[in-house]
Design a protein around this nucleic acid. Structure first.
Lengths: 207, 207
DNA sequence: CACGTTATCTTACATCTGCAAGATAACTGA
DNA sequence: TCAGTTATCTTGCAGATGTAAGATAACGTG
């Protein structure tokens, strides 16, 4: 009935949601998200269809919840806290692409043309929020920006970087990942570095 | 029955498709795409539901076809052919954002969280293709790149820029466009310039 | 114009959707 | 343990989906 972000204390709720999430992730590896019905998920989860609707509005909303942990993993590989002195950016970025590749089928299904706009938007928001936090933290430690409102440009830069990463990732996934994660990181890292507002392009603010 | 890219010679086909596209664009201004059924579109278009399925698999596929002209408009504002000597980049970019704002409700509905992954992917592909063409053309006129395969890095840069623009645009649209198109262009242009592989960041390759 | 082609319409069907009411049973807190 | 809460299940419904077969009529071609 209630669906806060807080994990419910009731075992039944946890059990049902876990079963639904598990079932969806299984099915999403097997076929396109657009070919997965609420009935399919409920049946595979061993749960009644009405129980599904007690928790989620539709398959997309479940998909968002179901892949939250994976997405948080993904985002964890991004910020690489600190001013990145030893150029460890490319390595963590490689881990980002490796994590994508590790669930390639799933991400391809969720982020691709037959995927879910809901999930894609969710991923972009979280990525953008992570980048924005990083920018704010770094700006606080620096003397002062050049001019204008830093908030505004931070928001734009965060949306820019988040979209860019999703663009590169989607493209790579849809081509069946011809390049290795390390190669993708090597190709993408210079682009992120070039956007660094603080320096000359050697340290990586945005990622 | 057949649905190539070629505009059919049969009047009936053109009439039906035009009616469906018109109906969908109307409805998309009124409510979320997820609340628009095939029946709704067919009824408003004055066409039988089976006729719909003779042309499109679902609402998303129609949406892609229906907004193609708008999207081409949008892309037309991007390349700004030539090495952009007088810094006219920000102005054409402002036209890009203005075009978005001109159909804000529609784009918000199509590209947003309740929109269509199919349409979003289509837009990103076309944007990326436009950027890639531009990169290729410019690379052909320049002496030679530093090293590595230029194709690979062009593909990545194109996907990067296309995603970034969609990211910025989506974010702006979902916030109800608080900044003017000119302001958005001013904020976004430096980011695109920074990615320019040919120069020092004053001329705009990617856009 | 007359012909063959074919897009559209009508009707029909099995399945899925989203929701509602009431019964059952599992959980929490005392 | 007991009582109250509440998540789940069952049943039922109106509307939407995706597809099929056959009839009609508009179309392009010769």
């Amino acid at each position: 009935m209630k669906d806060d972000g807080v994990p419910s204390g009731d075992r039944r709720v946890r059990r049902t949601r876990a079963a639904l999430a598990r079932a969806l992730l299984e099915l999403a590896e097997e076929r396109d998200l657009s070919r997965i019905s609420v009935s399919d998920v409920a049946e595979r989860a061993g749960v009644s269809r009405t129980a599904f609707y007690d928790h989620y509005r539709d398959v997309h909303e479940l998909a968002e919840a179901a892949c939250t942990a994976m997405i948080d993993d993904l985002i964890g590989f991004l910020p690489a806290s600190g001013p990145d002195p030893k150029g460890e950016g490319p390595e963590t970025l490689a881990a980002f692409f490796a994590s994508l590749a590790g669930h390639a089928g799933l991400y391809r299904g969720l982020l691709g043309p037959r995927g879910s706009a809901h999930v894609t938007d969710h991923v972009r928001r979280r990525l953008a929020a992570a980048v924005r936090d990083r920018l704010r933290r770094e700006a606080a430690g620096r003397p002062s920006g050049p001019a204008g409102s830093p908030e505004e440009s931070h928001d734009v830069l965060a949306a820019f970087v988040a979209g860019a990463l999703i663009g590169v990732a989607s493209d790579w996934l849809q081509r069946e990942c011809p390049q290795s994660p390390g190669r993708m990181a090597a190709l993408t890292w210079p682009l992120l570095s070039a956007l660094d507002p603080g320096g000359r392009g050697d340290a990586g603010v945005p990622a």
